[in-house]
Write a protein that binds this DNA or RNA. Structure first.
Lengths: 198, 198, 198, 198
DNA sequence: AATGAATGAGTGTTCATTCAT
DNA sequence: TATGAATGAACACTCATTCAT
């Protein structure tokens, strides 16, 4: 179904091909929009259908249950975010570069908010849904792996925790931490790095 | 029921408190139980009533809306947790004591799980409900104040973030961090303390 | 109950007498306010209590049931309105006076609206509640009696119907009838009066 | 059910109408039954569902809110009644015919009661719901237009008001007006007709 | 006499899910 | 393949009414 390109030369095949995956991802994107706006609690077939501008039946057709829709949406998110995360560090050459990127990660404005909110929604949902825990573990593993390339595994783990906490606080506070404080915290967490590896 | 009539002060106190507070706090405790078990999304009048073993109408009588019930429950939790948190550090005399307490905070088993889950539920809910943000700010302020007594304000802030992140990871991971790693991370975060203050 | 003045010379009787009726009528007035604002369907103990600024229990204490409250409120209204109606015609000396008063009755602005709305609420409620029908009959009898003093019984009946219909239309229309049309209609209905009687 | 499949035009027509209109109109009829029996105040989804013998969900599916259901039911009623009203006057040839029809309209027994009750319910509800006022205006316009064909606009308006008032009184009184009195009132209201037009 | 507490019935509405087409 | 119709369970909330004090 996913790779029958050779066999789907007919008009019908092409049409189906053209419609279906487009639908699916549009629905998943809409689901993420709803998750950002209303949280896991507010995710409903109807809201997703409305936001994706597809019939209600289309959502239930593509996703057997709401749990599946939620899971697929979060999977879609983790994949996308892992890629972005990876990309962020592609240009890091020096410890200073690393710090810059990490500070930007925490202080990142509204553009980063969506991603951060989805991350915490996923973490909290995973607390009760083992199927989602696969995703949080994958995400934790991936992000630590990226950090570990520069800092080693142990520092990566604590750095990861620090970032998570700082981002959560940044989302909620009305008096945001100054860039300097954030930088100082990041530097302190990265500092113990004995040998630079990038 | 918990006090004999003879011991309950004034007539007003007796009349006003005969039925109410027992009910109210029992309902709030039940609400927290539901929040731990099913999250903010799963908080319903019915579940709370059932767990508190009171009629449905009793919940809606004491709390005008579900939002109010949720808010009061979280307020109740923040108050209680602030007290516990404060108490944890009462016996801290040396930097080593401080580290011990913090490690215990992160590694703390099932007993701490309830509190941690409620904390994250509150944080996520506060993202969308300004009324709850008052509580997260109060909680953040209070916990940092306690830490700052030993470490100074700036270190307290980053320590707070680190703890938050580590606790969140601890809740979700299947391969918990070793006590040594946790200790190392905490020590590193506390280390910059120039002058000990306790 | 209504005429024990001679026997209630005691302090208790006096106190009850002094507090009770004040409360009662304030509640009844509040009930009429609610009836005007929200209709018979919207009449609830709580709304009445709130508008009268008395405790909920006070309403249920003075009126055994919602039906009783409704009935007493309407009775209060009919009594008051009958008096006003009577008074309106006190100064009528000539057929021209009569017409003036009737036109004013129909065209009467917002001041008359409250009364008109209550009247129709009562009529419609009486359709299903025989207890209220006593009141509509009393009101119809009283208003016709007043009119009949000037026009005779038969003309009074049709005049009454005409007024009722015109008032109802006036309440609902966006393009109100001109004063001249109203006057013409009233004159035509009064005209057949062979012999003037006032 | 009312049409054989062979007679229902296009495929689209058939598919779209297989289930829906039967349901929808059955629900609307049931809603009118409830309105007659219990008034606007007594209109509930559950009563309607029960009377229409459909599941509760079916009512909320077809009508997004109770207000919509109420509005659609009244619209349905106004359309039907306008037709009936129109038809009543189809055979009118002389002023005497007109009077006969009008008298019948007022004196009309139980058969007319349902219609009259719905009319007053609509009028009272329209007092508070602007959406319904569209319907009362349409109904007033339509009925006056019919009358005006025989009497001219101005007489039609006052005739309309008179009829409304007489019908309302007829609904409520225990001692109904005699046919002769009704006839006399109608004749007097129609009399001013200068030139007969039918 | 007066009232706050309490409760169970009932309301409008939302929703995930199923199913016929 | 895709979707509108349909449904029954559950929800937050309102309320008349009862009752202990």
């Amino acid at each position: 179904m996913e790779r029958t390109e050779a066999s789907t030369g007919t008009a019908e095949g092409r049409r189906a091909r053209r419609h279906d995956p487009e639908r699916r991802t549009r629905v998943l994107d809409a689901a993420l929009d709803v998750l950002v706006a209303d949280g896991v609690a507010g995710l409903t077939h109807r809201k997703v259908a409305s936001r994706a501008d597809v019939p209600l039946g289309s959502v239930t057709y593509h996703f057997a249950s709401l749990a599946e829709l939620r899971g697929e949406a979060f999977r879609w998110y983790v994949e996308a975010r892992s890629g972005e995360f990876e990309a962020l560090f592609a240009a890091v050459r020096t410890p200073e570069d690393l710090v810059d990127v990490l500070v930007e990660l925490v202080q990142g404005g509204p553009s980063r908010r969506r991603s951060a909110v989805l991350g915490f929604e996923l973490h909290l949902a995973a607390l009760r849904d083992p199927a989602l825990r696969v995703l949080t573990q994958e995400w934790t593993r991936a992000s630590r792996a990226v950090l570990a390339r520069f800092t080693g595994a142990e520092t990566a783990a604590r750095l990861d925790a620090l970032l998570e906490g700082m981002i959560l606080h940044a989302l909620l506070t009305t008096e945001p931490q100054s860039r300097e404080e954030t930088r100082a915290a990041v530097v302190a967490a990265v500092a113990p790095v004995s040998g630079w590896r990038a």
